[in-house]
Write a protein that binds this DNA or RNA. Structure first.
Length: 472
RNA sequence: GGUCCCGUCGUCCAGGGGCCUAGGACGCCGGCCUUUCAAGCCGGAAACGCCAGUUCGAAUCUGGUCGGGACUGCCA
């Protein structure tokens, strides 16, 4: 049996990290087992679904590196399809179930149902029992699936092992709305049957819906897929990952300068691991050993700090030319203009030093900005900490004099010249170089000083030292 | 309230009867390196929720308990 899995996002927002993680595990499973990975758009909520969100979700999946399989009897764009194109099919199934007695029309009002619920509770019945087939037959309203009360609904979950629900705890849920639009439960289940989905790996929030889907599947005369309910993702506050406190959409991470490989790697680690020791690994390595059965049962807290660390690891590991091209847009947006050809040369020269100390791409703009724009201000904390100390005037004055005499303007020469000068002045290297750093780069935190001075050039370096001196 | 799920360092993951004085990673603390910041290297603090039971032996199995979470829509 060929493994066939799917990810079914609702296009009612951008791709949520929780959905992305579910997509990732489905993709890994398909690729690990030589199976098929389908994307479908669960757009049964007509009010909130948009084509723009749908496109954004597909873009995010692509960005993460999750390619889906096209041409596997799914009709939509790029091998995806929309449920809204299949409403007739769902309605037909629902009506068929009514005809076979597995489902029924129900036109009770919400008030009536609430009263029934109260009554059921008073009589000590299971709460699910308040919605059951009424005595009189209806011919309009919603269509509900009738849950057979004769046996427990049991299934073997790949992650959670045996899970069991008593039928009286499962209420007769709506499969077709009174306006003829299918609910998620109907559309999703019909599609999983129609497209031969073999494994359904989804968030644990859907675990209570699973008995409903199983009954529905069997009522259609089919066999349910193998389920794998993935642990939920929590935010750093220990609560459910929410838009209010956390960055929850993949585009947030892309825009913040995270690399897709790092995000992929990090997401894998939320509920799964290669082994006890491996932290950094490629997509290929993950595909080589992935199995849904190895996914952990416990919910995972999304830790932005670890993701950031990992992003830094990926940045340091990449080719310097690639780093340059990826970070250049951030430099140019920081400056508000494109770099000139000669500035590009300077940027390429300094970029390996910046690459080592970057965790997020947008930081690069701030790191190298001093090279490409004149100093308008100094970092206040740096100035207070460094420039208000004794001896700063002397050091800067001496440095200006010495640097004017330097003919070979490169990092090595500047290094030996400045060390020699500080030795003569009997000033410590650390103490002596910091004022120069603040004067030249505007901050006590910067790329290495001599390389920065070399990249800046002699005239501009001396001019900045003079400018700082005037402010003392 | 009810149903279901989950409980190993602050966080993520490993360990599934003896190999566990519980391992790795992030973070944290200290040190080295060093012109700052990073990076790198070395070291450290830090966990089997609790109580019973099974067993020669339990982080691992069983029961209970406590705690957390999800669901409880004509949302998905």
């Amino acid at each position: 049996m060929t493994v066939r899995v799917r990810i079914a996002p609702s296009p009612t927002g951008n791709l949520h990290v929780g959905t992305a993680r579910a997509a990732l595990f489905n993709w890994l499973y398909a690729r690990a087992k030589g199976g098929v990975f389908i994307v479908r758009s669960d757009d049964t909520d007509l009010e909130r679904s948009t084509k723009e969100y749908e496109q954004g979700i597909l873009d995010s999946l692509r960005w993460l590196g999750l390619d889906w399989d096209e041409g596997v009897d799914v009709g939509g764009p790029h091998g995806t399809y929309r449920q809204s194109a299949r409403f007739d099919r769902y309605r037909q199934v629902a009506e068929g179930l009514v005809a076979s007695g597995a489902a029924y029309y129900d036109n009770r009002s919400s008030e009536e149902l609430e009263a029934a619920r109260q009554r059921a509770q008073k009589e000590g019945l299971h709460p699910g029992n308040y919605i059951r087939r009424p005595e009189e037959a209806e011919s309009e309203g919603v269509i509900r699936l009738s849950i057979p009360q004769d046996a427990a609904i049991v299934f073997e979950d790949l992650v959670r092992d045996r899970v069991s629900f008593e039928p009286q705890d499962v209420d007769d849920f709506v499969i077709l709305r009174s306006n003829g639009v299918p609910t998620y439960h109907l559309a999703s289940t019909v599609d999983d049957v129609d497209y031969g989905i073999t494994h359904v790996a989804r968030g644990e929030d859907l675990l209570p819906s699973t008995p409903k889907h199983i009954v529905l599947t069997r009522a259609m005369g089919a066999t349910e897929p193998i389920y794998a309910h993935l642990p939920l993702l929590f935010g750093t506050d220990g609560k459910k990952l929410s838009k209010r406190h956390d960055a929850t959409s993949l585009t947030d991470y892309r825009d913040a300068g995270y690399l897709p490989d790092a995000v992929f790697n990090y997401l894998c680690l939320l509920g799964w691991s290669v082994d006890g020791d491996t932290t950094i690994f490629s997509r290929e390595e993950a595909v080589g050993v992935f199995d849904l059965a190895d996914v952990s049962k416990n919910p995972a807290t999304f830790d932005p700090e670890k993701l950031q660390w990992m992003n830094g690891e990926y940045i340091r590991a990449m080719e310097s030319a690639w780093f340059e091209s990826l970070s250049l847009p951030f430099v140019e947006s920081h400056l508000g203009r494109a770099l000139t050809d000669s500035e590009m040369e300077v940027f390429k020269e300094i970029s390996p030093l910046v690459q080592e100390r970057t965790k997020l791409l947008p930081e690069v703009g701030g790191q190298v900005g001093f090279l490409f724009s004149e100093m308008e201000s100094y970092d206040d904390a740096s100035w207070q900490k460094v420039m208000t100390k004794d001896g700063v005037t002397e050091v800067l004055t001496a440095a200006i004099g010495r640097l004017r005499e330097v003919d070979t303007w490169d990092a090595a020469t500047l290094d030996s010249e400045m060390r020699a000068m500080l030795a003569e002045m009997e000033v410590g290297v650390g103490k002596g170089l910091q004022p120069m750093r603040v004067a030249v780069t505007g901050s006590s935190i910067s790329p290495p000083l001599f390389e920065s001075m070399a990249a800046l050039g002699k005239d501009r370096t001396v001019a900045r030292l003079e400018a700082a001196l005037r402010l003392l």
